[in-house]
Computed example of a mutant assay.
Amino acid sequence: MSIENLSNRDVPVTTRQVKAARALLGWSQGDLAEHSDISEPTIARLEAEDGPLGGRPETAAKIINALVGAGIEFIPQNGGGVGVRHSRR
C-alpha cells in the first residue's frame, strides 16, 4: 500500500503497526531512522505514544514510506483489527 493510499484511509497508521513492522523486518529504531532519514530520538518519541502515529505529516510519511519500501503492507481495520504483513512482490 502506497503512502497515497494510506493518506486516504479513515484510520491512520498506529504506533503499534510501526513497531510490528519493524519487528517483521528485524529493524531497530536506529535502522528505521537510517532508512527514513528521521532521527532515532524522534522515532523513539513517536513510538512511546500509543495510538495513531503522531508528529508532523511529513515525518509520518517518511517513516511509512521507509517501511512500505522495505516490503511492509499496512492492513486497515477489517473486522479483525489493524495490522501489518510482508507484501507480495
Rank of each mutant, 00 (worst) to 15 (best):
D31Y: 05
G79H: 06
Q29V: 11
P76C: 00
V82T: 12
N5E: 14
E40Q: 15
S36I: 03
P12S: 12
V13K: 03
R88V: 14
V11F: 15
R45H: 14
N8H: 10
N65Y: 02
V13Y: 06
I38K: 02
A66C: 08
K19D: 04
T59A: 10
I72H: 03
G55F: 10
I64R: 09
I72C: 06
I43Y: 02
K19C: 02
I63G: 03
P12G: 05
I64C: 15
A48P: 05
A44M: 11
I64W: 08
G69K: 06
R9L: 09
A23E: 13
P12D: 01
L24A: 05
G55D: 00
G80Q: 13
T42G: 04
N78D: 14
R22V: 01
Q29W: 10
V82F: 07
A21L: 04
S2P: 04
H86N: 13
E4F: 12
V84K: 01
L24T: 00
R22I: 01
A23G: 06
R16L: 12
W27C: 01
R9T: 04
W27M: 09
G81P: 08
I63R: 00
D50L: 11
E47L: 14
E73C: 06
G51Y: 05
Q17W: 03
N5F: 11
A33R: 00
P12W: 05
G30M: 08
T14D: 12
G71T: 03
A48S: 08
G69L: 06
L24W: 06
L6Q: 13
M1S: 12
I38Y: 02
L25T: 02
T15Y: 03
R22C: 15
E4Y: 08
R22T: 01
N8L: 13
N78A: 10
E73Q: 07
S28D: 13
A66P: 10
A44R: 15
R16G: 11
L67T: 00
A20M: 09
N78P: 00
T42M: 15
T15S: 14
L6C: 02
G81A: 11
I3R: 07
S7G: 08
S2H: 09
V11Y: 15
R56T: 06
H35Y: 13
Q77E: 15
G55P: 02
N65K: 11
I75T: 10
N8S: 12
E4T: 13
A44W: 12
K19P: 02
G69W: 09
N65H: 11
P41F: 01
R9G: 07
V11N: 15
E49K: 14
S2G: 15
A60G: 13
D10Y: 12
G69C: 06
D10V: 09
Q17F: 03
G51S: 01
L67K: 01
N78K: 07
E40G: 05
G71V: 06
P57G: 10
I75Q: 10
Q29S: 14
I64G: 00
Q77Y: 11
I75V: 14
G79C: 12
G80R: 13
N78T: 05
G79N: 04
R45F: 13
A33G: 11
G30V: 03
P57Q: 03
A20P: 01
A48D: 00
R56W: 09
L46K: 12
I72P: 03
M1D: 07
F74C: 02
V13R: 07
V18Q: 04
S28I: 09
N8Q: 11
P76V: 09
A60Q: 09
A60E: 08
V13I: 13
E4R: 13
A61M: 03
V18T: 08
E4C: 07
R9Y: 05
V82D: 00
